[in-house]
């Protein structure tokens, strides 16, 4: 019989084969969803994924790209933001 606390589906079930050959079920925490770009909704590359407790152990540089808006915007959308910034910096008088 399943333990009552494992009856809910908040933990995911992983089938594992033990060294003795038994098939057992392990209960593991679910991963959070894929991080997406704030502007275009594209899935972000270079952002660490996994169980929250494991990711917290990583260093800052391992968690997200090392650029402005890293982990928030995709590289293309970040470039658009920077181009806008550049337009603001152009001097009219020369």
């Amino acid at each position: 019989m399943v333990q009552p606390r494992f009856r809910s589906r908040s933990l995911r079930r992983v089938h594992r084969r033990t060294p003795t050959g038994d098939n057992v079920i392990h209960y593991e925490r679910r991963k959070p969803g894929k991080p997406q770009c704030r502007d275009c909704g594209k899935y972000l590359i270079g952002v660490a994924r996994g169980i929250v407790a494991q990711i917290k152990k990583l260093s800052k540089t391992q968690k997200r790209p090392e650029r402005p808006y890293g982990g928030v915007l995709c590289s293309g959308c970040m470039r658009k933001v920077m181009v806008q910034k550049a337009k603001g910096m152009v001097k009219q008088d020369g």
Partner: peptide, 14 residues
């Protein structure tokens, strides 16, 4: 004079 728009130095004057 330019603004870097990609990579780690993005948003920096150069």
């Amino acid at each position: 004079i330019a603004l870097k728009i990609a990579g780690r130095d993005a948003g920096q004057l150069c």
